[in-house]
Design a protein around this nucleic acid. Structure first.
Length: 504
RNA sequence: GACCCAUUAGCUCAGUCGGUAGAGCACUUGACUUUUAAUCAAGGAGUCCGGCGUUCGAAUCGCCGAUGGGUCACCA
């Protein structure tokens, strides 16, 4: 324990206590009184409960009249002289307690009256139903388990200020039940995903977060420093290159669910750290991965929500397989009338796009133009789950070329509600081609594209050892959770989203 | 990074034309033994986000800054 910092924080506390608002002073005085009477709640180390609130609701018929012990946070209080009602909240929900001076004795009842909303109490009592029909606990004994020194937000309007909700998620969770529901669902979604993959012979692995080269995606990395090695390192921007090394090593089905870090803009769809699932299956191609993707996601939805048709932001989304599959060229044709397969040269491609009102870099290639046309004219219209297949090679440095058209790759991304949810390909396993594509990325980097990939010599080395034909997939889990919980902001599905510290 | 909006009691919010800072919940005191947004009576509670300026006078007008939200850009 660090005495210096302890003393300092102690001094800070004394100083701030002089400035405490009345409401905070009252609670501290209550605590001091409890402590001086030998009832310091913070000295209590454990409390044995017999039931949760949920169990009492679920099994009321058998439990009526039975004695139970439960614990929770006081959420509301109605004192009516010699009898009181309160609601306490545990992990599963809220239950009413009925507290009478006759049952508790005067001394205990008087202390109960001084307890505040926010305090945590243990209640021993019997299960009953009130005159108005609410399942409740008639308290025989009440133990203060924790004193709350700050008032909770108002019971009726809750906590709305988004700044406070994200910074003090613990308060948000206490007063906004849907927050807890969302994060329980998040946990269940990831659990269902693991179950799905484990059942199909996938092995879950963990690969490094600290990277020497940040590869596997086009993104700006976070840089950190290892002191002993005196080495700048990157926080990973993808798990891809390590997972493929494992396929080289002989793990034929692997996946990793883990945190990814990208040093880029923030928005309702982007947090600097987010969670991805990447999986790799040897001897599979991107068609196999499409089958797996639509089956996995619709299965997760059914497991977790009990249905595969969901409502997201007012739109009904049908996740049931099969999903629409269309090539990027056909999708562009469908939405713009432009047939890029008939366009031969880069220049012709640029002119075609400009005719549609797009501003195109004078060096843009046919493939880059195709990708821009798709992103600008098609993407946001893909509301129902759609696989977009066959991406241009320029934007797909890790995917296998299509045999019948070397300008394209065996790659797909899938879109729901106009958002990209995942990315997959028949993985490039030609080490010579891979090295050339890294070189091209390095050239782009030299020209100032900070998101271009870095050369990863060891990954090329692994491919030289030999990787079987492999299909791979990456999905942004946070967005999947948004979809399945109907959350409009990624911050609503991340417990502690990245926040700028407040000044001072 | 750019633009727009917000910031007033612990929380949710009013605040007129620039003229003494308001409500509900929460809190304190009292009444009340089946209430449930309990009720009734009384009371306390403010760095009006911060700074500078305009003005006799600023929560209110102007400028600068902070944080958040939204849109765009970048991305998943």
């Amino acid at each position: 324990m660090n005495h210096t910092s302890d003393e300092r924080s102690g001094i800070d506390q004394v100083q701030t206590e002089e400035n405490l608002s009345e409401i905070l002073k009252v609670r501290r005085e209550k605590l001091v009184r409890l402590q001086s009477e030998g009832n310091n709640p913070y000295e209590i180390t454990s409390f044995d409960i017999t039931h949760s609130s949920q169990q009492i609701f679920d099994y009321f018929d058998e439990m009526e009249g039975q004695e139970v012990i439960l614990a929770g946070r006081i959420m509301s209080k109605r004192i009516m002289g010699k009898a009181s009602f309160a609601h306490i909240q545990d992990e599963k929900g809220q239950i009413q307690i009925y507290v009478q001076v006759n049952e508790l004795g005067k001394e205990a009842y008087d202390s109960f009256k001084t307890y505040d909303i926010g305090d945590i109490i243990g209640v021993t009592g019997s299960v009953f139903k009130t005159k108005k029909g609410e399942i409740s606990i008639k308290a025989a004994e009440i133990t203060l388990l924790c004193k709350s020194l700050q008032p909770l937000p108002e019971k009726w309007h809750g906590l709305k200020d988004p700044d406070l909700r994200y910074r003090q998620r613990y308060v948000d969770m206490i007063v906004n039940p849907e927050v807890r529901r969302t994060f329980v669902l998040r946990s269940k979604i990831i659990q269902a995903m693991r179950r799905y993959l484990d059942d199909r012979g996938f092995l879950e692995v963990e690969t490094p977060v600290l990277h020497i080269t940040a590869g596997g995606a086009a993104a700006r990395p976070f840089i950190t420093h290892h002191n002993t090695l005196d080495l700048d390192m990157y926080l990973r921007i993808a798990t891809e290159l390590h997972l493929k090394r494992l396929v080289v090593g002989g793990f034929e089905r692997v996946y990793e669910i883990g945190r990814i870090f990208r040093n880029e803009g923030m928005s309702t769809k982007h947090n600097p750290e987010f969670t991805s699932i990447e999986l790799y299956q040897a001897y599979a191609d991107y068609h196999d991965i499409m089958n797996l993707t639509e089956d996995m996601i619709s299965t997760i939805a059914r497991d977790v929500l009990g249905r595969d048709v969901v409502t997201f932001q007012g739109k009904e989304i049908n996740l049931a397989a099969p999903w629409k599959r269309i090539t990027m060229i056909d999708a562009v044709k469908e939405h713009t009338g432009v047939d890029m397969s008939a366009v031969q040269t880069d220049e012709e491609a640029r002119k075609t796009a400009e005719k549609l009102g797009l501003t195109i870099d004078s060096k843009a290639t046919w493939g880059e133009v195709l990708n821009i046309l798709f992103e600008e004219k098609v993407e946001e219209q893909l509301i129902q789950p759609t696989f977009i297949m066959d991406y241009p090679i320029e934007v797909s440095p890790l995917a296998k070329r299509k045999k019948e058209d070397p300008r394209l790759t065996e790659r797909f991304e899938f879109f729901i509600y106009g958002w990209e949810f995942g990315n997959a390909f028949s993985e490039l396993n030609d080490p010579i081609d891979q090295k050339e594509r890294f070189m091209e990325q390095v050239r782009q980097r030299a020209e100032g594209n900070e998101e271009a990939e870095m050369m990863d010599e060891d990954f090329v080395n692994a491919l030289e050892i030999g990787m079987p034909p492999t299909g791979g997939l990456g999905i942004g889990i946070d967005r999947l959770v948004m979809l399945l919980t109907d959350s409009s902001s990624i911050r609503d599905v991340i417990l502690f989203p990245t926040m700028k510290p407040k000044e001072q």
